[in-house]
Simulated scan of single mutants.
Amino acid sequence: MTTSTETLTTDDTTASDHKITDNPSDTRKLANVKEVLAYLAQQFPLCFSVKGAAKPLKIGIFQDIAAELEQDNLVSKTQLRQALRVYTSSWRYLEAIQPGVARVNLQGEPGEQIDQQQADHALSTLTESKQKAAEVRKAKLAEQKAKTKPATDKPAYKKKPNKTATNSSNNTKLSSKAVNKTVSQPVTAPDLHAIANEQLKVGAGVLVKLGQSPMTATILEVHKDDVTVQLSSGMVVKTHRDSLYQA
């Protein structure tokens, strides 16, 4: 019988768990592979098992099972094929495929012995299956670690600020404000020259005196003696040409 790499997980399942009836008139279909395998172990206990060491099955045993259960309404041929595929790809079954070990029929009677080629194929399938299972476990662990990482990185307590450092920081801020305030005050007022008529045009840079200190600005619009300018701060101001000076 050929094998696949799908892993069987029926070690904890027994026939008594499913309470399978021996009455052929029972029309309840078996629900899943576990139930089908438990049923096969109940019907053919010298051939199938759901835990412990497995016995290598006779090649072509599907036809024997189908003939024995032809009148059985509990399980279909499709379910039987699926159950056999899972059973023969389980790790415990693949481990039982050793050179010189006899395959058994439904009555547990020994028959053809396993050759080296069959044993090598089973070992290769088993190794590949275990590697895939290890990769799946590794991926799940990495996923769980990624989900829990933000919680573990959260600090267990909140460190109180150092009063000395806070006071020093406050003093630094005050000093900085004082320096900024001092720097912002002009030391001497620049000499202002009235703007010429040819300089009074849109886009020209000028000085506009809105308070005590002149500010740089750009002319946006000229309407007779009324001029609209944009200060370097972005503010747009409408003023008189008498307030404008050469930049």
Rank of each mutant, 00 (worst) to 15 (best):
T228F: 04
Y245A: 00
K224C: 04
S169V: 05
L141W: 10
P161Q: 15
A189L: 14
K29E: 02
N171K: 15
N32P: 00
K145S: 04
Q107S: 08
E68A: 15
Q43K: 14
K55P: 06
A38Y: 03
T148V: 11
I20C: 02
A165Y: 12
F62G: 08
K51N: 09
E6Q: 06
Q230D: 03
R241G: 00
I65H: 00
T10K: 05
K238H: 02
G111D: 11
Q212C: 04
K34W: 10
T172M: 13
F62V: 08
L69S: 05
E6N: 08
L141M: 10
K159W: 02
Q79A: 02
R28I: 08
L8N: 03
L192F: 09
C47Y: 05
V229F: 08
L200K: 09
I97P: 01
I20M: 03
A134W: 05
A189T: 12
R81Q: 13
H240R: 09
T3I: 09
T125V: 12
D17I: 10
K163H: 12
Y157F: 11
L84M: 13
I114M: 04
I61G: 07
E109G: 09
A156Y: 13
L126Y: 05
T164V: 09
Q107H: 06
V208N: 05
I61H: 09
T9K: 14
K238W: 03
L8C: 06
G60S: 10
S184C: 01
E135G: 06
S232P: 05
G108D: 08
A31V: 06
Q82E: 11
R28T: 10
G108C: 03
K177V: 09
S25T: 07
A178E: 15
M235F: 14
Q42P: 00
D17F: 15
V36D: 01
L200T: 03
L244I: 07
P186Q: 07
N171D: 15
K224I: 01
A133W: 14
L57P: 02
T5H: 03
A151I: 14
A194T: 09
A53V: 13
A67H: 07
V136S: 08
I65T: 04
E109D: 13
K177C: 11
T216D: 11
V86D: 01
I97Q: 00
N23T: 02
S232M: 11
Q98W: 06
H18G: 08
I219R: 01
T125K: 07
I195N: 00
K77N: 14
V104E: 03
S232D: 15
L30K: 01
V75Y: 02
E128T: 13
N32H: 12
K149R: 15
A151R: 13
Q71R: 06
L207V: 04
K55N: 13
S243Q: 15
S90R: 05
